[in-house]
């Protein structure tokens, strides 16, 4: 049970930070998203994001910061095998399913529906 509470509080906390940045720092949604992805990647660079996931579970994996962490993970993994070229090969390794799903479902929805506004 405590795992759920921690996940809720940590995930919610990240969202609160995002909302505050939108409202007070006047960041655009695109800037905010990029910032969070970069923060996730940097934290993973110092090996901190995996520890964060161990602690907060879905509270750390669901927010967009985990996307940055996954990008870096894939890139580092392939770069160990293939050097610099591996960074390019591996960067979307772990996230490709998510990106493909986004493209596929966006395509299906665009076929079926017309925008409302």
């Amino acid at each position: 049970m405590i795992d759920y509470v921690i996940a809720f509080l940590v995930g919610g906390g990240i969202c609160v930070i995002g909302q505050l940045l939108l409202d007070f720092a006047k960041l655009t949604p695109a800037h905010l998203m990029s910032l969070f992805v970069v923060i996730g990647a940097i934290l993973d660079g110092f090996d901190l994001y995996d520890k964060f996931i161990e602690f907060a579970g879905a509270g750390a994996t669901v927010p967009i910061t985990s996307f940055g962490h996954s990008l870096l993970h894939g890139a580092m993994h392939q770069s160990e095998k293939h050097g610099f070229v591996g960074i390019g090969m591996g960067i979307f390794e772990l996230t490709s399913a998510g990106i493909s799903a986004a493209i596929l479902f966006a395509f299906i929805v665009a076929l079926l529906f017309k925008p409302k506004g």
């Binding site: 949604p29 925008p115 506004g117």
Partner: peptide, 20 residues
């Protein structure tokens, strides 16, 4: 027109950007 103007000057409404 709401949809043409929002798209050009702010965000497309489907983008779901928050407004103050």
């Amino acid at each position: 027109h709401n949809a043409t103007a929002e798209r050009q000057f702010r965000y497309p409404t489907e983008y779901g950007g928050q407004k103050p």
